[in-house]
Design a protein around this nucleic acid. Structure first.
Length: 446
RNA sequence: GGAGAGAUGGCCGAGUUGGCUGAAGGCGCUCGCCUGCUAAGCGAGUGUAGGGUUAAAAGCCCUACCGAGGGUUCGAAUCCCUCUCUCUCCGCCA
């Protein structure tokens, strides 16, 4: 548990860390360029280098001028105290001051050019990430369970849900529009049961601390986790405010420790958080238009970790296992794939997707995405830690993964547990959360 | 929405007739000493980031940072402006 964390307040969000990023790119230019090309990003080296060079020319000059100013100001103070005439020095310093102002303006202009370049460079994939162009190159690394055998033609979940009277898409679109759902009766209860079920397992068995964050965040948070500035179109923004609806709990939860320096003993930190998620789904017009798969608003239970760099890859494995555990308890057949370089998200260094089997649609569908961001988000958000007995600080590594997407879990349950008579069996593990009922009965049975 | 108060180092808390304060003092923490345990006591140290020096590190030098941004000035934690946040009272409200 974290207690009384000091908040370092002196920086303006990415200024201090901004430099580290710069130095790394400068020192590993070719390697950076190559790994970014693997994920389809073209880094303009010459533009970067010329701006960086200008910056490094100005900085020492500016610092020397400031040094001079500091020294002479001391001298002026001394002379005045001793009743001497400091007028000549003062007038000389006027010129120096003017020069400092000019250099400062030049430097900040350079920073303004550099910042947008740096902020849109994606993370560098981990060595273990397979090189590939798109999702067709994602290797399956393991599979659990098997496809259920059905003696009838399975229906897609939207038909099941509407027949059972637990999902109402028509009225949802009257209330809000397309890509929204209205859950009713046992449908609403099922969604709520899954949230509690997932939270309880992660809290009680996997050691996560539950948090319930704001569902709107400011732009500093969105920049910290990497949604801004590049993916503004995917977000819902509150008009007239610096508030965005969160697209995932990753954003508020990772930003819990923005601009903080944690103690070594605090790490690792595990958080689990239920939140609704809001996504514009810009650019996915006509895709998954039916059912619960792709909604503007959906529920998700999210796992978030902060850890020391040397542990982050084993933490990724255990986080992924924690997410898988939910599917296993629910008896849902799934597979785990590693995202290849071309399919990797902007901020991630490595990602495993859990894909659940959907018999109604006869395909595997992403239900969880578990990523290690290494220090990418920590650098942007200024999340550090201090090792015992050593001076200086280091960036933490951050990870997160869905544990699980709740709406898609409902989809999987409806499609995998549908019966010939139209009812849907509730898996045993979930029954305590459903007031003990064993199935959602078909209206025809009553 | 109206009226006030405030934001300083890990914490508490000085510093507001601008100058030698990166920042008194206390607490905490670290190391050493002392005390046959514990407590107390004594001494020293104790921010972050960037740049330079170095083969590297240590060390040393420089710069920046007293909520954020801008301004005045030879010089600002100290003066002015804007913003953010926190707190108190009144009103309103789930």
């Amino acid at each position: 548990m974290v207690k009384d964390l000091p908040i370092s307040k002196q920086r303006n969000s990415y200024r201090g860390s901004f430099m580290l990023d710069l130095k790394f790119i400068r020192n590993h230019l070719d390697a950076v360029k190559t790994s970014l090309r693997n994920r389809g990003y073209d880094l303009d080296i010459s533009a970067f280098e010329s701006i960086d060079r200008k910056r490094r020319e100005i900085l020492p000059v500016l610092e020397n001028l400031r040094h001079r100013r500091n020294k002479v100001s001391e001298e002026i103070a001394r002379m005045k105290r001793e009743g001497q005439d400091a007028t000549p020095l003062i007038s000389e310093m006027k010129k120096v001051s003017q020069e400092i102002k000019e250099k400062e303006a030049a430097l900040s202009e350079i920073d303004e050019q550099l910042k947008p370049i740096l902020m849109v460079i994606p993370n560098i994939p981990h060595d273990s990430v397979p090189v590939g162009r798109d999702e067709t190159s994602n290797p399956v690394i393991r599979t659990w369970g098997r496809q259920p055998e059905m003696q009838f033609e399975p229906l897609p979940h939207w038909e099941i849900g509407e027949k059972l009277g637990i999902l109402d898409f028509a009225r949802a679109s009257k209330i809000a529009g397309t890509r929204f759902a209205l859950y009713k009766g046992l449908g609403a209860k099922l969604e709520r049961a899954l949230i509690s079920f997932m939270l309880d397992i992660h809290i009680n068995e996997h050691g996560y601390t539950e948090v319930l964050p704001p569902f709107m965040v400011n732009s500093a948070c969105m920049t910290g986790t990497g949604q801004l500035p590049k993916f503004k179109e995917d977000l819902f923004k509150i008009e007239g405010w610096d508030f965005y609806l969160i697209p995932t709990a990753e954003v508020p939860v990772t930003n819990i420790h923005r601009e903080e320096t944690l103690k070594e003993d605090d790490l690792p930190i595990y958080y689990v958080s239920y939140t609704p998620c809001f996504r514009s789904e810009a650019g996915s017009y006509g895709k998954d238009t039916r059912g619960l798969i792709r909604q503007h608003q959906f529920n998700k239970v999210e796992l978030v970790k902060f850890c020391k760099p040397e542990n982050s890859y084993e933490e990724l494995e255990s986080l992924t296992r924690n997410a898988e555990e939910i599917l296993r308890r629910l008896g849902l057949h799934y597979r785990v794939v590693t995202l290849c370089t071309g399919d990797l998200g902007f901020s991630a260094a490595k990602t495993y997707d859990l894909e659940v089997w959907l018999p109604g649609q006869k395909l595997y569908r992403e239900i969880s995405s578990c990523s290690n961001f290494e220090d990418f988000q920590a650098r942007r958000a200024g999340i550090r830690f201090k090792r015992k007995g050593s001076s200086g600080t280091e960036l933490v590594h951050t990870l997160n993964g869905s544990g699980l997407a709740v709406g898609r879990t409902v989809v999987a349950l409806l499609e995998n547990y549908q019966q010939q008579d139209g009812s849907v069996v509730i898996p045993e593990a979930l029954r305590p959360y459903m007031a003990g009922i064993e199935s959602i009965p078909s209206p025809l049975q009553e």
